[in-house]
Design a protein around this nucleic acid. Structure first.
Lengths: 224, 224, 224, 224
DNA sequence: CATGAATGAGATTTCATTCAT
DNA sequence: TATGAATGAAATCTCATTCAT
């Protein structure tokens, strides 16, 4: 009996995880349609074939869903970066490769930058303390790992400085994104040449800024 | 002689501007109490001693109020920066002075960073096209002026590069802020040493990053 | 001096009446565009080239405007009927002539039936006691006159019965109108043959009903 | 066994209908207190012990509530008339019985005449096309049934003429009602003998008019 | 007198969240 | 667990009416 019960539970747990994931997938799918607004719970529920109340069995608030999504994406991205640093690639190719990874990731996950931008103003403010903590701790774990890998490759760059470099990278990317991300209803406006100047293309600008930032940290230090 | 006590009715454009301002002041006052959420319109109305309807007489949406507030603050800040650059101060003192201005401004206007962070994710998306456009154009005007002033002081730095430097500064500051700004309910969490690393103190971090960014742009170029 | 003052006053009073009339005209003009809703005060004010507040100098409430309009129209109509009865026309032609007058009047004053329909549900409920009283007294005056004229022509029909006939006429017309008047958004619906039956054409129905009602009162009585 | 105490949640369609009904009852209860104005949604919500949002879950607009109420009442009334016509009663008693039914119904449902009077000027104009259509179709159904029953009893009266008779009855009643229904603030005025004449007692007047109308249609035709 | 700013009630909508079933 | 009915806060809008200037 116990055995069977356990199995059932195991299956249940598995199913639970599956259901949770299906909610995340649905949320991502709908959010992709309008990256300017977190979709409503009812739309997520419908898209995952569940009732509204059921969604709340898996996530305490709507924002928790999107924090989970963002968490997933950050984890994926940081793992890719970690792989890069731990690969056989030459140091001088690290920066362009890193930029490629970022660019590719953002292109693939169109919701990453929007979500990351909303993280603290919209999302975290409505997620339970402990869940945010878990998210942050996950980040810490990977940042430390990446920081350590950086230090191995560039011994003059301490792990702490490496972590700082990553944080600045994140800050710069988010900041740039927010400056160039325009609400749907303003897309047309952006074409005015007058405004081009305050709203540069995101990707070229990011590439330029990252080159500058990382070269400063990795290469200049190397010379010394 | 201007009346110190405001009239009950705003008859001319000047008085209308005053009333508009009093709404902005009230909004700022209330927002200051909880920088994580835009206050409700009714609370703003009450705080300005007006009826809800009156607030909507001056602003189309709640977000328009806060865009006006942010606009005001950006204008003030950019004017201060412009004054600095146009002053007699020596080039080598520009960076620390700039940092002082920023630091002082942010300390004085506690709502500036929170609002700037919300600008595109929360505020602009619910403000009429043309009002946002006006805001952006105001920014352009000042950015160009500051860019030109920078070019005068540092001839090797083209106006365009100067504007880009300002944009990067803004991006960096906003990005850093968002990474360290924690919702009320999470303040305690931040004390965990484990998390300190992903959430550095904002001001020191900003100072460090700005020094780095501006030195790279102003001084390095100078050498070349 | 007094003389001049008096003249000025006389001019003022005249101007006042003119202004009052211009408000009524404007109200009628705008109401004609959408007979399903009393227009807003601001639209009436604009149409009469006055400020909103000024309208309220001439009428205590919006509904008072439309009661005045309706009053005017009832007066005109009742005067026409009175003229008919007091004319040389033969008794046997009275009913068709009456129907002609009504039909012509309604065609000319498209707002008459809508206003009359709204009189008690919408208009009178928001007009000062005394103003409504004045309206009702005006009606009484004309009803009595018409009743008396009817009695002269049809001696077997007492003045009271004549007044009652007029009241029934009014009731029937208003009732029929309301049954066939459809809100703008339902005009299309009315074409369904299924519904034709509950919403007969107003004019033919009215003609039929009036013939029936008046013949019963005037001619049948005559035979007795 | 049906539960007498209503569930807090309306789970199935039956319970939903009950809840809908409880809103209608509450609306009728409040409307009864002031038959001159449709009560506010919030007052209806409170009276039904529900939240405002819940009321809007069951009805799209305030007017839809009152159209539903009126629809219910018309249905009840028409059913009663149908029963009468299909009963064993003798033809010569039909008219007085009909008048009794109407009188009793109006006395019991004090809100019937006020609502019927508002139907097109106030209610229908703010109810969705299809909901009004449903209302009208319900009327058609009963009118046809009553028309057919009339034709059976009075073969010389075609179904169409029977329906027309009903429509005229309705028109006359509504018209008479509107002429004698005085807003609260004018009740006192009505006592002036001068005005009695334009505002006869509703019930006697109705009895008189109906006798006249129906006798003309049923009996006169019979003779022919 | 004339003006139009200010008021405030109320309708309607949206939607996150709760909770009875 | 799953459901979706119920809640209620807040945004937004409309507009009649008032009243300071």
């Amino acid at each position: 009996m116990k055995c069977i019960t356990q199995r059932l539970r195991a299956i249940d747990d598995n199913e639970k995880a599956l259901k949770r994931q299906s909610i995340l997938d649905a949320a991502a799918r709908i959010f992709a349609k309008d990256l300017n607004n977190l979709p409503s719970v009812i739309s997520i529920a419908k898209a995952s074939g569940l009732a509204k109340g059921t969604v709340y069995l898996y996530f305490k608030t709507k924002e928790e869903i999107f924090l989970a999504l963002l968490s997933e994406q950050y984890e994926t991205l940081l793992l890719e970066i970690l792989s890069l640093l731990d690969s056989e690639i030459e140091n001088k190719h690290i920066i362009p490769e890193l930029i490629t990874i970022l660019t590719r990731f953002m292109a693939l996950k169109g919701s990453f930058m929007p979500l990351a931008s909303m993280a603290n103003t919209v999302i975290e403010k409505n997620v339970e303390r402990d869940v945010v903590a878990q998210f942050k701790l996950m980040l810490v774990k990977y940042l430390k790992a990446v920081g350590a890998s950086l230090h191995q490759r560039f011994p003059h760059l301490s792990t702490e400085k490496g972590i700082q470099l990553l944080l600045h990278t994140n800050a710069l990317i988010i900041g740039l994104w927010q400056m160039q991300s325009w609400p749907e209803n303003l897309k047309e406006l952006m074409c005015q040449p007058e405004l081009k100047i305050v709203s540069p293309e995101f990707f070229p600008e990011m590439v330029c800024a990252l080159n500058y930032l990382w070269r400063g940290s990795l290469l200049n230090h190397e010379q010394s």
